[in-house]
């Protein structure tokens, strides 16, 4: 029964929050436009272009793969920042607007449980937003390579040799899919907290959501002098164990990319550490916290009658 309504509930979230697909669309368009204008304006430097293409053609396969892979990684990173912002604002809005405009009374007049509704919003935040983003990333990367190969051909280069052959698409897409699954799960306690704030607050969910994130570390520092809470928030936000930061340290970018010893070309999926992510107690503790907060949000939507 729970699953029966999820499809239409999630469709409703997409109707209500077009930002879920418009944001990646806009990011994709900007990336492609920047690429296009960059290439067109670079074309003016005829000689430099020739040198660059000749140079690119003469370096070995691994370096070309690394260069193209680096571009693909940058594209994916831009999208993931966008997705994270959409996720935050979506989950802060999800259970707040329906109370503010009183439409909650209409939704609750239909035979759907509060649990079904709140779960559909959690699924939208944790899975739908990331996977809409993944689709946009893949499409943008392919179009970017296509635009680039057209440009390379115009400049007299060999596009299949310079662009398509070295493009580590399989490697990049594998990494993107793994990250799209793993990062939201890692961030789930924050999403759970935002959903709860959205269900609970009388006004400004953003304010309520940010308050403890800012105040608690300060209080801890002032009262006890330690900084466990701040560290926990830092790790949760910027140090997901799915990414192998130890290994990343060995990659240096200073004019030229230098890879850790032994590796052939830059591989994005090599920077992932799936097994230690899955056994990380922090991941599972975070999921439990998310579960508790979402349960609390369901409880608030179910039991607090204030809007009628």
């Amino acid at each position: 029964m729970m699953i029966g309504h999820q499809r239409v509930l999630i469709r409703r979230e997409l109707w209500e929050h077009p930002a879920i697909y418009i944001t990646p669309l806009v990011i994709g368009l900007i990336v492609l436009l920047v690429t296009l204008t960059g290439q067109v304006s670079f074309s003016a430097y005829g000689e430099a272009v020739n040198i660059a293409i000749v140079g690119a053609q003469s370096v070995d396969e691994q370096h070309r793969a690394t260069a193209v892979g680096g571009v693909l990684a940058v594209v994916a990173t831009i999208f993931s920042i966008g997705a994270w912002i959409v996720m935050i604002f979506y989950s802060l809005d999800a259970l707040y607007t329906e109370r503010k405009d009183k439409s909650i009374l209409f939704w609750r007049s239909l035979p759907i449980t509060d649990a079904e509704t709140v779960v559909s919003k959690l699924i939208t935040a944790l899975f739908v937003i990331p996977f809409v983003t993944v689709a946009a990333v893949m499409l943008t990367q392919v179009l970017l390579l296509a635009i680039t190969s057209v440009w390379v051909m115009f400049q007299g280069g060999d596009a299949s040799h310079l662009v398509w052959a070295p493009a580590p698409l399989a490697d990049a897409w594998f990494a993107v899919i793994v990250l799209a699954l793993a990062l939201p799960l890692w961030l789930s306690p924050l999403i759970g907290w935002f959903l709860f704030a959205s269900a609970f607050t009388k006004r400004s969910p953003l304010l309520l959501a940010l308050l403890p994130i800012i105040v608690l570390p300060l209080l801890e520092k002032l009262l006890i002098g330690s900084r466990y809470i701040g560290d926990a928030i830092w790790v949760r936000s910027f140090r997901p164990p799915i990414i192998n930061f130890e290994q990343l340290k060995h990659i240096e970018i200073n004019g030229q990319l230098s890879l850790p010893e032994g590796s052939q070309a830059l591989s994005l999926s090599d920077q992932l550490d799936i097994s230690s992510f899955l056994v990380s107690p922090s991941l599972w503790a975070g999921l439990v916290v998310c579960g508790l907060l979402v349960t609390a949000a369901i409880y608030v939507r179910r039991y607090r009658d204030e809007s009628y």
Partner: peptide, 25 residues
């Protein structure tokens, strides 16, 4: 029930609303 005249979600399109009710009721 109709609780009040103003409770239909304002962002939704009429056909979406009908689809939603059809799928849930």
């Amino acid at each position: 029930f109709i609780a009040d005249v103003a409770v239909l979600p304002r962002w939704i399109r009429v056909h979406q609303l009908l689809d939603f009710v059809a799928a849930t009721h």
